[in-house]
Design a protein around this nucleic acid. Sequence first.
DNA 1: TTGACATATCGTCATCTTACGATATATTGA
DNA 2: TCAATATATCGTAAGATGACGATATGTCAA
Lengths: 106, 106
Amino acid sequence: MARAVRKSRKPVELGAESLGQAAECLRVLAHPARIRMVQMLLSGRYTVGELAEDCGIPDNVASEHLRLMQRCGFFTSERDGRKVYYQVAEPHLADIINCIESRFSK
Amino acid sequence: MARAVRKSRKPVELGAESLGQAAECLRVLAHPARIRMVQMLLSGRYTVGELAEDCGIPDNVASEHLRLMQRCGFFTSERDGRKVYYQVAEPHLADIINCIESRFSK
DNA sequence: TTGACATATCGTCATCTTACGATATATTGA
DNA sequence: TCAATATATCGTAAGATGACGATATGTCAA
């Protein structure tokens, strides 16, 4: 029962390399607490403890999430006394979070 | 060494419910072959075999990826003879893929 | 009907992910 | 110096994920 859309030939888009990176980036983002942390950090600078409390998870777990995201370039951190502040380093995160929000805001 | 950005108070954004859904959606997308399939299907209608070949994976593996994505509402499918065509059902996928592409092209 | 093709499903296994508790490190103030 | 606070790291165990081969289902054509 026939064609509805014409194939304009395979999309060229991303190479295997980039597909892998994109997938990894999405995998890192694909966790409720991590999405929340990105949202928070897009609106300011927060400590591990503040992020952990907001997410309702223990500090050490929050610290591991933050480390993961820092490793892949999402965040940078800087120490201020005994606290460590994290902030967004990857500018494209805002775009992706916007997509997510516009899809999932009720 | 002090504040760079003022906190405008916690972002209200998504509830725990929506965060969970968003995370699940990202997790489903977080695989090179699945990203590729979404890209393909955003530009037309393709069979399991065509998608599998393009991704360089066996048909049964492609079929499992497609099933996963169909389960969470990304795609619908319709049979035409012995072939099955998949197509995009979730309109927001285009937005997210655009974000990904603009980040990872090159 | 039979055989070939296209797709789907199932069981299994290796690997990854996550959370947890315990412990380690760094910084401050007494 | 010591104790308290904030963060980081490590080992581990439970659960999820992904690929594979084998098999099942559905469809067509001879």
